[in-house]
Nucleic acid binder design. Structure first.
Lengths: 99, 99
DNA sequence: TCGCGGTATAGCATCTTTGCTATGGCTTGG
DNA sequence: CCAAGCCATAGCAAAGATGCTATACCGCGA
């Protein structure tokens, strides 16, 4: 959050070594998405089991997701969004800094 | 694509179960993401093979993705975003109105 | 202490995407 | 006519996520 300089540097190595930096970014994204869902869930006052039922999952799947244990797929994100009464936003946008 | 036999067949497996609507949304999202990537790629004047090399994929994978043939995973979306010099946005937002 | 609700983990079966090679059709340029 | 580039698709192996059951941990209240 403070600065993104170091990460930008890592990003350039991706061109030579597929699977290294992306995996890191994906893990971070998974973690943040999990945190978002947990926040939304708690805001509704639901337990993991409650959310699981609403989104067609099991409690263990919700726990794994909230912990960032796996990189979620879009279908799962959509089901969670629907269950939480929010909409999922996925897209590209221009990058605001140098490469 | 008035009939779209391929599409229908692809989703038919789950149309009878709860969660079918989400699966459909995922397919549509895949399609739109593919279109976005194709636009960005052509804007750069790159071929699928060029983009593939930059993002650590093969031409066939890019073609499949652009056609919406599969629902992409977040790691792939991030690699494509990096290759295309854009940033990937994934998140939840309140439903029912513009941001 | 016991039971209970909530959460975290483990292990496994299944499904989907990805990565890869190869090929066919199409268009353009020599 | 032939060659080259570009895109689409097929088929397969590998990787990873999901779905599921079961279980362990924790705090809390009866």
């Amino acid at each position: 959050m403070a600065e993104g300089g170091g990460w930008a540097a890592m990003r350039e190595r991706r061109l030579a070594e597929p699977g290294a930096a992306e995996a890191y970014d994906a893990a971070r994204l998974a973690f943040e998405l999990g945190r978002s869902v947990r926040e939304l869930r708690e805001r509704q006052g639901w337990s993991q089991a409650q959310l699981a039922k609403r989104s067609g999952m099991t409690q263990s799947a919700v726990a794994r997701f909230e912990a960032g244990g796996t990189v979620p797929t879009l279908p799962v994100l959509e089901r969670l969004a629907a269950a939480l009464d929010v909409s999922l936003k996925v897209g590209f946008e221009p990058r605001g800094h140098a490469a």
